[in-house]
Design a protein around this nucleic acid. Structure first.
Length: 223
DNA sequence: CCAAAGATGCGCT
DNA sequence: GCGCATCTTTGGG
């Protein structure tokens, strides 16, 4: 389990080092799991952040010690963040990919019970089964798949018995660094605070590599 | 109390 | 890639 000291560092560094880490979530006797593939960093002083709007009870977790979980409603659905070093700074877990041990799972595999549970928790809008690539591809979709609710987790700490992040010290070989999503013009929208695991870019919310008219160095860079 | 905006996601083009 | 449905929070009146 990642300790609070992991989060007690610069938010952009934490965001990058979270890539490749695994989220573990206890549900009905099973450990649901997903690999983090996309993150965003937010700072008190950047106008895209919730913290920059000032302290309210809802935003309190952003001002609590590093490693505190901040959950809020994004367009009415649950979203997962963790506070970092410096009051008001945090990382947003933007998307993940279903995890069931080493190697990349595909829809053609016989899916483990844990993955099927995640598909039950987060069915397609049609009511059908959501393919793996769409199961955790979004900050609220991820929370839905892992049964992570605002009411239960906002302002809480990670808990080794039911919800935590884990993984080795390695970050992916290649990381895509680009702009955050959903930030209006004039709100520091140009900041390159979004990070994507290169090898999983096709599963993230919006893939810089395949975006029309997007160029390396101009709109994103590989680090 | 209500209008407006928001760290979105879906469906269709 | 774009429009819009959805629902919570916020802030002004």
């Amino acid at each position: 389990m990642l300790q609070t000291s992991f989060f007690n560092r610069d938010a952009c560094l934490v965001a990058q080092q979270l890539l490749g880490k695994i989220i573990f979530r206890q549900y009905q006797g099973h450990w649901l799991a997903a690999r983090i593939i996309e993150t965003e960093a937010y700072y008190l002083g950047d106008k895209g952040s919730h913290a920059s709007l000032g302290f309210t009870e809802k935003r309190k977790a952003l001002f609590m010690p590093a490693g505190t979980i901040y959950k809020y409603y994004a367009r009415g659905k649950d979203s997962l963040n963790v506070s970092c070093r410096g009051e008001g700074n945090a990382v947003l877990i933007k998307s993940a990919y279903p995890y069931a041990g080493p190697g990349q799972l595909t829809d053609s595999d016989a899916l483990p019970a844990e993955i099927k549970l995640m598909q039950q928790l987060n069915p397609a809008s049609s009511g059908g089964v959501r393919p793996l690539e769409k199961l955790c591809s979004g900050q609220t979709l991820l929370c839905q798949s892992l049964n992570l609710k605002v009411d239960e987790w906002d302002q809480q700490q990670f808990d080794a018995t039911c919800f935590y992040f884990a993984g080795n010290e390695e970050t992916p070989e290649k990381i895509i660094q680009t702009t955050r999503l959903g930030i209006p013009a004039g709100r520091d929208e140009y900041l390159l605070y979004r990070f994507i695991d290169y090898d999983y870019a096709r599963f993230c919310t919006s893939n810089p590599l395949t975006k029309r008219n997007w160029l390396e160095r101009k709109h994103y860079r590989i680090i």
